[in-house]
Amino acid sequence: MNIFRLAGDMTHLLSIVVLLLKIRTTKSCAGISLKTQELYVIVFITRYLDLFTRYVSFYNTAMKLVFIGTSVAIVWYMRLHKVVKQTYSRDEDTFKHYLLIPPCFILALLIPLEFTVTEILWSFSIYLEAVAILPQLLLLQRSSNIDNLTGSYVFLLGAYRALYIVNWVYRFFTETHKIRWIPWISGLVQTALYADFFYYYIKSWKNHEKLRLPA
């Protein structure tokens, strides 16, 4: 474990804490894409299939359980909680997220890490995570005003994968000296998708003005 990966995991965890905080304290999920949250449930479940078959460390197992548990809890809040579900921006969250699943699955069949079910699903989850934020970014463009917690959530979510890229560079030079095409290219695509959000988020933060994304 290196500091970049720990920072990445903690940033990822913090993004989820911020989202849960927003939903629980404001009893609202306005501006949050349910479709992105549902994709994350699929990402975590397909990525952590080895949860009970391969023990890496307490930290690893604990974090996997937290990520699966919180992502399911968020979807539960947005779909079933009597108060929160009323605040879901249903008619703005229109990205056809199910269209993202077949290409990622086909890509995982064409370029898996290994031709085993768990590795094909692991590759699928890496590819899907790269594009899972798209419904959320589209929703942000449509939201007239983005509240601070939602903006922070998306910023932290983008920052975590950027920190993972630094971790991959660090590990390449200090440990493995091996190129890991699947996570690296997916991670770069994933982080690149946040590029314009990062630009407008940092600009709004510097100018102390409300975050607004151009439509």
């Binding site: 990525r47 990520f67 091996k178 890991r180």
Partner: peptide, 10 residues
């Protein structure tokens, strides 16, 4: 193929 230790990441 990926070295197994790389699968210690989340």
């Amino acid at each position: 193929a990926e070295t197994p230790e790389a699968k210690d990441e989340l």
